[in-house]
């Protein structure tokens, strides 16, 4: 039988969901980082080995994966600044909800700058 917690601290709304998204994106980025150090380590094997593997990063499917990865990083970065402000800024807890909307606004602006550039490179018929 699953253990049932005697009540819950989860309160929903902006605070909880940004916390959930911060965890999910963090774990995602961490596992990519492990893979990314391994693939980069192939430069010590041979130029051919590195080029073969990095070539798979340049396919359309991986290109979409990179777009998702960058989205995760951009959210985690801006929301991380928000978390630090909630902790260290005297008005942080009062404005945590507003700051999440600022984070999402900056996220949209940053992705609007990145996606057209990246996707045109990935799908641009090289």
């Amino acid at each position: 039988m699953p253990t049932a917690p005697a009540g819950t601290l989860y309160r929903g709304r902006e605070g909880m969901w940004s916390w959930v998204a911060h965890r999910v994106t963090g774990v995602l980025i961490f596992f990519f980082l492990l893979v990314h150090v391994l693939d980069t380590a192939l430069v010590r094997v041979s130029p051919e080995a590195y080029n073969a593997v990095i070539g798979t990063y340049q396919t359309p499917i991986m290109g979409l994966g990179e777009a998702g990865l960058v989205a995760a990083i951009v959210f985690h970065a801006f929301n991380g600044i928000r978390v630090a402000l909630v902790d260290f800024w005297s008005q942080g807890t009062r404005y945590q909800r507003v700051m999440l909307w600022v984070v999402l606004g900056l996220f949209v602006v940053t992705m609007a700058g990145f996606l057209p550039r990246h996707l045109s490179i990935v799908f641009g018929g090289h």
């Binding site: 430069v43 130029p47 990095i54 340049q58 990145f114 490179i121």
Partner: peptide
């Protein structure tokens, strides 16, 4: 890191052994 490797020049297509070198 992301800007130099994905936005500048040919982006992800420019990355190869010579780029890292």
């Amino acid at each position: 890191h992301l800007f130099v490797n994905l936005m500048v020049g040919d982006g992800v297509h420019a990355i190869d052994f010579a780029f890292v070198g």
